[in-house]
Amino acid sequence: MANITRGIDHVGVTVPDIEEATDFFKKALGAKVAYDNKKLGDEPLQGKDTEKH
């Protein structure tokens, strides 16, 4: 029996500038922001645990 992909749930992308990346994905792919888990001005996630994930 063949393994057939039926869809994509989500894709995570780490970027240095979230505003620039959001603008790019909106223009290039017609993407929409579904939700934000960080606010502008929040400290970036960093450290061993973040790099591990």
Rank of each mutant, 00 (worst) to 15 (best):
I18W: 01
N3Y: 05
P16A: 07
H10V: 00
N37D: 13
D9R: 13
D42A: 14
G47P: 04
G12M: 10
V11Q: 05
K32E: 14
D9V: 08
E43D: 10
D23W: 01
G30M: 02
H53D: 07
V13M: 13
H53I: 14
G12N: 08
E43L: 11
D36Y: 12
D42N: 05
R6F: 10
A28P: 03
T50G: 09
P16I: 01
L40R: 15
G41R: 12
H10E: 07
K48V: 02
A2F: 11
A28M: 06
I8C: 11
E19L: 11
K48I: 00
E43G: 02
D36M: 14
F25Y: 15
V15Q: 02
A31I: 09
I8A: 06
H10I: 05
F24I: 03
V13D: 03
T14Q: 09
D36F: 05
P44K: 04
T22L: 08
D23L: 13
D49Y: 05
V13K: 08
P44N: 04
H10W: 11
R6E: 11
G12L: 07
D9T: 12
G47Q: 06
A28T: 10
G7V: 02
I4K: 12
T22K: 07
D42P: 00
E51W: 11
I18V: 13
N37W: 13
K39F: 00
A21G: 04
G7S: 09
K26P: 00
N37V: 10
D17V: 02
V33N: 03
P44C: 03
G30L: 09
D23Y: 07
K32N: 13
G47T: 08
M1N: 09
H10S: 11
E19N: 10
M1G: 15
E19M: 03
G30A: 02
R6N: 13
V15H: 02
K27Q: 15
R6L: 15
D42Q: 02
H10A: 13
E43S: 14
K48H: 05
D36T: 13
F24P: 06
V13R: 08
R6H: 06
E51K: 15
M1F: 06
K32Q: 11
K32I: 01
E19F: 03
A28Q: 05
K26S: 01
E19V: 10
I18P: 03
A2W: 02
V11T: 06
T14I: 11
T5H: 01
P16Q: 07
V33G: 05
L40C: 01
P44A: 10
I18F: 01
L29T: 03
G30D: 02
L29D: 04
A21M: 08
G41D: 06
H53M: 09
G41M: 09
A21V: 00
P16K: 14
T22C: 06
A2Q: 12
D23I: 02
T50K: 14
D23F: 07
T22A: 06
E19S: 06
V11N: 00
K38W: 06
E20Q: 15
N37C: 13
L45Q: 10
I8T: 05
V11E: 01
G30F: 01
P16W: 02
G7W: 03
K48F: 08
G41T: 01
K32V: 04
E20G: 09
D9C: 11
G7L: 08
L45D: 10
